[in-house]
Amino acid sequence: MLNDPAKSVSPRPFLKWAGGKSQLIGQYIPFFPQEFNTYYEPFLGGGAVFFHLLPPAAVLSDINPELINVYCCVRDDVESLIELLALHQEKHDKDYYYWMRSQNYQTSLEKAARLIYLNKTCFNGLYRENSQGKFNVPMGKYKNPQICQPDLLRSVSEVLRSSKIQVSGFTEVLRWAKKDDFVYFDPPYYPISTTSNFTAYSRFAFTEVEQVKLKDVFVELTSKGVKVMLSNSDCEFIRELYRDFPSDEILATRAINSHGSKRGKIKELLVMNY
């Protein structure tokens, strides 16, 4: 019932994620390097670029331990995870959502299933934590949320098996990336207005200081011969930071804003060192 063996599902992002790049991949394709060795994605999120490139060797990381736990569980024990998600699918309603949101599970699989469940049923698929690290997004208005997607999860599990997945900050890439590797940075974007000042998808804020530190990492990787691509807001601050590198404008759709009238097309910046 949960799985149709005749059905082939290509691996793709299985989480909805604020700032996810699935809709932008078509615009990114001309800018990806033609050849590289190991692929690194230090701000993993939904992993849209990874799932497009499907590199034979990858190091996927994020500072959010809950997110990394989900990827590890999908890779290492996808069948047990599917069983838990099927139970959540059966029980889902408003009361169950808020009960699940309040839970503090101890096992890796239970934590992973909880995050996927909340991600598929919360408002806009937005991952947000308060200062205590507790998920605090209200329930979304979905008629039939796809909480359990066995075929997709199995295909994702297959392609993740050749990847190293770890909790780490973006500066850690300096320890591992070598000449002719490829690093893609997709940090929380620099806010271009007070209403877009949303830089903390977790309790770890990404400040202006962090943006400058990221630029320094970009420069150091460049000096090592690593190929680097970065996406960020198209604004004076980011353009000035990366003024020594080629860049291109990307037209994106803004889905998260406190004012509905301000959601829509917006320019983003794609920066490269090659």
Rank of each mutant, 00 (worst) to 15 (best):
S8A: 15
S10M: 14
K16T: 05
G20L: 07
S22V: 10
G26M: 10
Y28H: 08
F31Q: 09
F31W: 10
F36V: 06
G47R: 01
G47L: 00
H52Q: 10
P55F: 00
P56M: 04
A57M: 11
S61T: 07
D62A: 00
E66K: 12
C72E: 15
C73L: 07
V74L: 01
D77C: 10
D77R: 11
L81E: 00
I82C: 03
E83M: 11
L84V: 08
Q89A: 08
K91V: 11
D95M: 13
Y96Q: 01
Y98F: 08
W99F: 15
W99G: 15
R101H: 02
Q103R: 09
Q106A: 15
S108C: 11
E110T: 07
I116C: 01
N119M: 05
K120R: 11
F123N: 05
N124V: 05
G125W: 02
L126F: 04
N136Q: 05
K143L: 13
P145V: 02
P150T: 06
D151S: 15
L153N: 06
V156M: 07
V156Q: 05
S157C: 03
S157D: 00
S168C: 09
F170S: 03
V173N: 06
L174G: 07
R175N: 15
W176G: 14
K178I: 04
Y184P: 04
P187W: 01
Y190T: 12
T195R: 10
T195Q: 08
S196H: 10
N197V: 08
Y201W: 10
Y201E: 10
S202D: 04
F204V: 15
F206D: 06
E208S: 12
V209E: 14
V212Y: 14
K213H: 08
K215M: 07
T222R: 11
S231I: 06
S231Y: 06
S233C: 09
D234K: 09
R239C: 09
D244Q: 13
D244I: 12
I250A: 05
A252R: 00
T253C: 13
G260D: 15
G260K: 15
K262Q: 10
V271I: 11
M272T: 13
